[in-house]
Simulated scan of single mutants.
Amino acid sequence: TDRAQNPTGAAVSAARARALREVLRGHPGTLLVEDDHGHRIVDLPLHPLAGATRHWAFVRSAAKAYGPDLRLAVLTGDEVTLDRVRGRQRLGPGWVSRITQRAVARLWADGAVDAGEVAAAYGRRRDALIAALAERGVAARGRSGMNVWVPVPDETGAVARLLQAGWAVAPGARFRLASPAGVRLTVSAVGEGEVGELADAVASAVRVSPRRGYV
């Protein structure tokens, strides 16, 4: 994911893209799949890696920018990979609503979403939450997109305490393999006036209570 990575909000810079392309050129048989779901909601430029290997696919979806009901994406790639995708579609539900296709094409053509304003709005909420958490001694990060990643000592406990306080967050276990524990906060529905309240709840939820001993 070149930008707005889920859950950390990481984005590939131009320098990082050059370094990754050099690595990929040494492994030309690698299948490279890039998902640009952050298109039109991110204010950072795209630095794709496509073309560094023989087989590649680049996907750009519409759900994040235009609404979750628009489960549609455009795909390009090398000839062999595209043929394999078409073959898979023939074996299952490969049909996509023509009405949905035309709706998305019209939204793109008419510029229905002000990409700059959308990206700026997400950026303001994301940066405000990260700053508010820092003021409360909680480390967090999120460079692009709508998510903020908060390292926590205990995912289950943090998620439960936040839910009890009225906030639903995603446990990090579903996103990680060997990296430390964390939770994902999504700022898409967080109003500017709610940032402080959310930061207070997170700061309280991630604090580890001292263990008690009994004799």
Rank of each mutant, 00 (worst) to 15 (best):
D2L: 09
A4D: 15
P7N: 09
P7I: 08
T8D: 15
A11R: 13
S13Q: 06
S13C: 04
R16C: 00
A19E: 14
A19Y: 00
L20D: 09
R21T: 14
R25V: 00
G29R: 11
T30N: 01
L32H: 01
V33E: 11
V33M: 05
D35K: 00
H37N: 11
H39W: 07
R40N: 07
V42P: 00
V42D: 14
D43C: 03
L44E: 14
L44M: 07
P48N: 02
P48M: 03
P48H: 06
L49K: 03
A57H: 05
R60D: 04
A63M: 09
A65M: 05
G67P: 05
P68A: 12
L70C: 06
L72K: 00
L72E: 08
T76Y: 02
R88C: 11
R90G: 09
R90Y: 02
P93D: 13
W95N: 03
W95T: 10
V96T: 06
V96P: 00
S97K: 03
R102Q: 13
R106V: 01
R106S: 08
L107Q: 08
L107A: 12
W108N: 04
W108C: 01
G111H: 04
A112T: 14
V113C: 10
G116W: 01
E117C: 08
V118I: 02
A119D: 12
A120E: 15
A120F: 05
R125I: 08
R126F: 04
R126L: 01
A134R: 08
G137T: 08
R141E: 15
R141M: 10
G142H: 11
G145R: 11
N147S: 15
W149N: 07
W149A: 10
P153K: 12
E155P: 12
G157P: 10
A160E: 08
A160W: 00
A160Q: 06
R161I: 04
Q164N: 06
Q164P: 03
P171L: 06
G172S: 04
A173R: 13
A173N: 07
F175L: 03
R176W: 09
A178F: 02
G182H: 15
L185R: 02
L185F: 06
S188C: 04
A189F: 07
A189V: 09
A189G: 10
V190S: 07
G193Y: 10
G193P: 04
G196R: 13
A199D: 13
A199K: 09
A201L: 13
V202F: 14
S204Q: 12
S204L: 11
V208D: 13
V208P: 15
P210Q: 08
R212G: 11
G213I: 06
